[in-house]
Every structure is written in C-alpha cells, then in structure tokens.
C-alpha cells in the first residue's frame, strides 16, 4: 500500500458501472478510540478473572524473540496449562507480544494490528530491545523504547529471555489484570494524541489512516 492508494479514485465494476471510491471512508473507519469504563465493579472483577485466565496471544513475531514463543507450546513448557492460547487473528486475540527488536517498518504493522484488537487488550514487551534498545541501541532502524508508541503492561527483560521468564511474565500480567491495573486500551484512547505524535515522528511515510479499526 502507498499513499496514493488512499486518495479518492474512480473504479469501473465488472458490469461497466462507474463509481467513486474514497478508501479513507469506505475501507477504513477513522473514528478515534474512546475510553470504555467498566460498568459494574463486581461484574468487572469476575470478567477480569476470566480475561486473565484466558490470554489469547496474537501469533505475530516481530523479532528474534518469536523463537522463544514456540517452545511455550511444546511439552517442556506448555503454556496452555495457564490458559494461554495462540490465535491467528488480531480480532480474537487480547495479548500482543512484541517479541524483540522492532524496526520502524514493523512498528507500522504492529500499530495496525494493535488497533484492530478489541478493548481489553494487553501488550507485553519481550527482551531488552523493547526496553531500551538492547544491543540495537545505535541502530538506525529500530525503536528504542516501546512504551512511547504503545501502552505496555509488562516488560520481560533479557536478551533473549528464556521461556520460563515468559511464563513468569504471564503470571505477572495475570496479577495486573486481576487487580484491574491492565487498562492499556483505555490509556491508549486517553493519550491518543501523544501516542500518535510519537508514532508519526518515527514513521516517516505514514500511509494509513490515523486509527485502524
């Protein structure tokens, strides 16, 4: 996709019909995200328990840390025991693991994916690259701290963290969710302008809508 694809254009249908397409309005919905307050405290506590016990990870590996996620499915580590499952589509996932270094090119995709996930959504930064750049601290093409671009709930330090560290990270995230502290989606909606400003500073060819539903 490039910037020109987002302009209005005339399209001829297979039947020879001419009509105008405005991709920004017809293909995307650009409405800003809004904060959704939990309705009832007791119900919310029950829901938070369910959310924490059923973490659906988006199967999207951004860097070398994706390698460490595969052993979690194997008999040795078996993250399924803790209700952690992998989903192939952002619509159904509620946990995005940014696994390792994140180049600006991938950051663009990660933002799109994150914004397609639905409201209670959590982000886990994996490896020192997401914390302070790690061994890519002087790279011209990787971001240095993830929390300027996405609201991060848990960081797992290490280069690379072992699968055990990831399991500990899941447990930590569960505690946060149960305590009602993992409100990344609402934070993103509240500080939307700040996040967008940071994202656009780094991504120089911004060729997508401001918010990808």
């Amino acid at each position: 996709m490039s910037l020109e694809d987002l302009n209005k254009k005339q399209i001829v249908s297979p039947d020879g019909e001419h009509f105008e397409v405005d991709p920004m309005n017809d293909y995307f919905c650009q409405d800003r995200p809004e904060e959704v307050k939990p309705v009832n405290k007791i119900v919310e506590r029950f829901y938070n328990w369910a959310r924490s016990e059923s973490l659906w990870i988006l199967g999207f590996g951004t860097g070398c840390g994706a390698i460490e996620m595969r052993p979690l499915m194997t008999p040795r580590f078996d993250a399924y025991r803790f209700g952690v499952q992998w989903r192939p589509t952002p619509r159904q996932a509620n946990l995005l693991i940014v696994s390792g270094y994140l180049s600006t090119k991938t950051l663009k995709r990660v933002i799109r994916v994150y914004e397609q996930m639905q409201n209670p959504k959590f982000v886990m930064g994996l490896g020192s690259c997401t914390i302070n750049g790690g061994m890519y601290f002087d790279s011209y093409n990787t971001i240095k701290r993830l929390d300027y671009y996405l609201p991060v709930d848990v960081y797992v330090a290490g280069c690379m963290p072992r699968p055990e560290a990831l399991l500990a990270g899941f447990e930590e995230l569960k505690k946060l969710i149960k305590a009602g502290k993992a409100e990344g989606a609402n934070e993103y909606a509240n500080k939307f302008d700040w996040y967008k400003k940071n994202q656009k500073e780094v991504i120089r060819d911004w060729d997508m809508p401001d918010y990808n539903w």
């Binding site: 302070n132 750049g133 011209y140 701290r145 780094v202």
Partner: peptide, 17 residues
C-alpha cells in the same frame, strides 16, 4: 553515515543507559 548519532537524535531514548 553516523548511525549512533542518528539513533540518539531520531528515536526516543530511555534515560539511564
């Protein structure tokens, strides 16, 4: 091309490194 200077000025750095 000075990659270190570029990274220091272009990206948001975390202090204390």
């Amino acid at each position: 091309f000075d990659t270190k200077a570029f990274a220091a000025s272009f990206y948001h750095q975390r202090e204390g490194r």
